[in-house]
Amino acid sequence: MRALHRGLIRVVVGLAAAAPMAAGVSAQATVKLDDPGALLEPCYQSVTVSNDGAFAVAFTVRAENSDPFSTEWTTYFGRSEARTLDVGDVGVGEHTPVHVEAVAAFGNPFKSRDFSFCHNGHTKLIEAKGTAADPWFEER
């Protein structure tokens, strides 16, 4: 019975060691904790909110690190409209963690997951959906 138990343990340990490699990840892969951008990839230079909902929406981009900042809020804009904010225009540092805060007129506020800022020309898309009675936002 002990031999069977030891054999099962060896198989489980062997499978656990092979799982990262089977997923295309090196068993030696590490994340440098002194590089905050490594934790928040991919990174984006700008944010676009597209309003596909039946309500008006406004948004800002914020960082809440040791040097907090916020872009100016956009004006409220309606259905089938979009607004883009270039995060680099406010002088935020490369690989700074930021997030989007949006609000539907008369609705609940939305806060996106954090992502990293970098000067790369990429744009993060957030879509406003639903109705004034039931607004929501989807990150793309």
Score class of each variant (00 low, 15 high):
42 P>Y: 12
133 A>L: 15
115 F>A: 03
72 E>T: 06
57 V>M: 02
6 R>K: 07
30 T>G: 11
105 A>W: 11
29 A>E: 13
78 G>Q: 13
68 P>D: 04
107 G>L: 06
85 L>V: 15
85 L>R: 01
61 V>A: 02
120 N>E: 05
77 F>Y: 10
97 P>C: 05
19 A>M: 10
137 F>H: 05
33 L>I: 13
105 A>R: 01
114 D>A: 11
138 E>P: 07
103 V>S: 08
39 L>D: 02
66 S>F: 08
67 D>I: 00
132 A>C: 10
64 E>C: 04
89 D>G: 14
21 M>Y: 12
57 V>F: 07
84 T>L: 05
54 A>Q: 14
139 E>T: 13
20 P>A: 03
17 A>P: 00
105 A>K: 01
27 A>S: 15
84 T>Y: 07
81 E>W: 10
20 P>G: 03
97 P>Q: 12
42 P>C: 08
137 F>D: 00
52 D>T: 12
47 V>E: 00
54 A>L: 15
7 G>K: 00
22 A>T: 14
107 G>F: 09
31 V>G: 01
80 S>V: 06
108 N>V: 09
133 A>H: 13
83 R>V: 06
20 P>E: 05
48 T>H: 04
29 A>F: 14
33 L>D: 13
82 A>L: 09
73 W>C: 02
136 W>Y: 15
36 P>E: 07
55 F>H: 11
60 T>N: 03
9 I>Y: 10
60 T>C: 03
94 E>T: 10
89 D>V: 08
27 A>P: 13
136 W>K: 04
122 H>Y: 13
41 E>F: 15
24 G>I: 07
102 A>L: 04
126 I>F: 11
104 A>T: 01
90 V>N: 02
31 V>S: 04
59 F>V: 03
118 C>R: 04
85 L>T: 06
82 A>C: 05
19 A>H: 05
94 E>F: 13
59 F>I: 04
9 I>P: 01
127 E>S: 15
44 Y>K: 05
1 M>Y: 11
